[in-house]
Computed example of a mutant assay.
Amino acid sequence: MAAATAGQAGRRVVVLDHAPQAGRKILISGGGRCNFTNMDAGAGQFLSGNPHFAKSALARYTPADFLALVQRHRIPWHEKAAGQLFCDRSARDIVDMLLRECAAGQVDMRLSHRIIDVARNSAGLYRVETDQGVFTARSLIVATGGLSIPKLGATGLAHDLARRFGLRVVAPAPALVPLTFGAQDREWMEPLAGLSVRVGITCHSGTGRQARRVTFDDGMVFTHRGLSGPAILQASSYWQPGQALEIDLLPGIDAAQRLLAIKRDRPRAGAVAMLSMLLPQRLAQLLAHASLPEGQLAAMPDAVLTGVAAQLSAWRLNPHGTEGYVKAEVTRGGVDTDCLSSRDMEARDVPGLFMVGEAVDVTGWLGGYNFQWAWASGRAAGQAVAERMD
């Protein structure tokens, strides 16, 4: 996006990519269909040390703008869930579209070029040494992403370059990633592997006036190592080691009222039967055996049922860690936004150096938000480079 924008404005642009194929991460996204944007994308769906940083770029290149580009290239698409747009055919359509946009700007695409060294000389020119030659330029846009999915070639190059040029880096961590648990928890979790349940998970970020609270109401899946599913992936971006995860197993339901109603209507039912009316059978059995006495509901005090209801609405689990960058869809953290201009992504103290996309400390929710940040931040940098033509 950055290259196409600058190239179509008349700049001479070369793209250096160490991968043998362009857009490999795009190709595997969205189950191969690429959730290329979210029509609801705004700064509120992103985590960052500066929650306002993303506003400028996102406002100047919107989901509607990218959708217009998709439609101009006659790529069929559909809305899978509220605001989430996917290709009808394949993610290949998006990669091909971006390559055609680059070709329209006469961008020189160089694949399989391993970066050896990057420096800036006294004249302000950037020198990029690769295993296939040296390139010099007045502007350098770093769009190399984060550490997630190393099998596709992900590296910490962006973070390394940022530090080399004196930019601070917010500690990177896997995000949009399954959570893992210790051996003690896995012992009771493993029989539930493959089980899916709709939950609500409330997450917190920031402190003081910047404090935010958001609840994700979506699917959760038990695995052999812990928890996954959309709600867990969303929560993982907020989770910090040592924190407990608070899960509402009955989102949108007054659990106490519902349990007492079942007791009234089916007094001869047992605990497992009661919870099975609200939860998948295997989970109902586990929770009933752990939290409720045997026997008929009629014999259970209301206080016992309201206590169980409180547990169902705020089930606390303690993750041990995550599945790491191998399974992470994105990298949280990255180049500190205080070091960059929110308008064009240029380093404040290093003229001509731009950091965009996942390399920056801006992490979107699951559902097309990170792609929209990639398009918007790339566009902003490309426009800034184009405006400096001489």
Score class of each variant (00 low, 15 high):
212 R>S: 14
213 R>W: 03
157 L>I: 10
25 K>E: 03
175 A>S: 15
277 M>C: 06
163 R>V: 04
143 A>S: 15
262 I>R: 14
149 I>N: 12
181 F>I: 00
304 V>Q: 10
55 K>W: 00
335 V>E: 09
207 T>I: 05
118 V>W: 08
244 A>N: 01
272 V>Q: 10
249 L>Y: 02
372 Q>W: 06
93 D>Q: 09
35 N>I: 04
86 F>D: 11
226 G>D: 02
340 L>C: 05
23 G>K: 01
333 G>I: 09
198 R>E: 07
12 R>C: 02
89 R>S: 09
50 N>I: 00
207 T>G: 11
40 D>K: 11
175 A>I: 07
12 R>I: 00
177 V>F: 01
379 R>D: 08
32 G>M: 08
275 L>V: 00
334 G>H: 09
355 M>N: 05
39 M>T: 14
140 L>H: 05
103 A>T: 06
81 A>W: 12
178 P>W: 04
168 R>Y: 03
7 G>E: 02
79 E>K: 11
112 S>C: 14
154 A>E: 09
329 E>D: 13
321 G>C: 03
291 S>E: 03
17 D>N: 12
124 G>C: 06
5 T>N: 02
384 A>F: 14
48 S>T: 01
310 A>S: 13
291 S>N: 06
34 C>V: 06
324 G>E: 05
382 G>W: 03
100 R>N: 13
27 L>K: 13
256 A>K: 08
289 H>M: 08
88 D>Q: 10
328 A>G: 07
140 L>D: 08
6 A>T: 03
314 A>V: 00
153 G>D: 07
4 A>H: 02
164 R>W: 01
242 G>V: 00
190 E>F: 01
253 I>F: 03
63 P>R: 05
40 D>H: 14
182 G>T: 01
358 E>I: 02
24 R>T: 05
47 L>C: 04
172 P>N: 12
76 P>E: 08
248 D>R: 08
295 G>C: 14
169 V>K: 14
379 R>H: 15
98 L>N: 14
16 L>F: 08
40 D>E: 13
363 T>A: 12
336 D>Q: 04
158 A>K: 11
108 D>Q: 14
253 I>Q: 13
151 K>E: 12
208 G>C: 05
131 D>H: 15
116 I>E: 15
